[in-house]
């Protein structure tokens, strides 16, 4: 554990809880992509199956349980409790275009051919692109609510902070996992355009709207 990873995890946690609380408080999931949330639920499920097979620390286990619960809680709110507020007309990204290639890639580039390892690798590849339906939705509607922008910024910052963590780990403990590092870089690059808009608009008190 180092400061970059801790900040990354806290940023990730903040993003997930921010989204959950926003939907709960406003009684609405307008502007949120249910498809991205489905992908994140798949990501957490396939990655954290190791809750039952490999113990790392209390911290890791608790965080995994929180991420899983919050993710399924978000799905429950979006597709059941506040379903009428779900804006499915604008959530039109075809997620099979992400699910299938990520699955194929996890069989092609993987550290070891075991079920758990392929599932873990799949979760890494899918996470890298899971935000695309949400970004697509923002581009279709041409705007995002300020809290949705904060959510996206926190979620994007998490993997960027993990990149600093991997650089630190490379020098301090020879850690080098190219699968997660390259996927993490791709994931962070996808947010760059949004980061620019967030810094130039939202931080100056303006609503995030596209020209």
């Amino acid at each position: 554990m180092n400061i970059f990873r801790l900040c990354g995890d806290l940023s990730h946690l903040l993003a997930i809880l921010l989204l959950l609380v926003k939907i709960w408080k406003t009684r609405s999931c307008a502007g949120i992509s249910g498809k991205s949330q489905i992908l994140f639920a798949i990501v957490y499920t396939t990655r954290y199956l190791d809750l039952f097979t490999s113990f790392v620390s209390i911290y890791n286990s608790v965080m995994k349980i929180v991420f899983l619960s919050a993710s399924y809680g978000t799905l429950y709110l979006m597709f059941y409790k506040f379903k009428p507020t779900y804006d499915h007309n604008h959530d039109s990204f075809r997620i099979l275009y992400l699910i299938v290639p990520a699955l194929v890639l996890s069989f092609v580039i993987v550290h070891a051919y075991t079920l758990m390892e392929v599932l873990w690798t799949y979760s890494i590849y899918l996470e890298a692109v899971a935000i695309m339906p949400q970004l697509f939705m923002v581009s279709r509607t041409g705007e995002a609510e300020t809290i949705t922008s904060h959510y996206l910024f926190a979620l994007g910052s998490y993997r960027a902070l993990y990149i600093l963590n991997w650089i630190y780990r490379y020098y301090t403990e020879d850690f080098l996992d190219l699968i997660v590092i390259i996927a993490g870089i791709v994931q962070t690059i996808l947010y760059c355009d949004f980061f620019y808009l967030y810094i130039t608009k939202v931080l100056k008190g303006k609503r995030l709207s596209l020209p």
Binding site: R5, D9, H12, D50, S54, V56, S57, N60, M63, K64, F67, H111, A112, E117, W120, Y162, N165, D177, V180
Partner: peptide, 10 residues
């Protein structure tokens, strides 16, 4: 190797 398969991150 072995170390990499024990995923210790989230």
């Amino acid at each position: 190797g072995e170390a990499i398969l024990k995923h210790d991150e989230l």
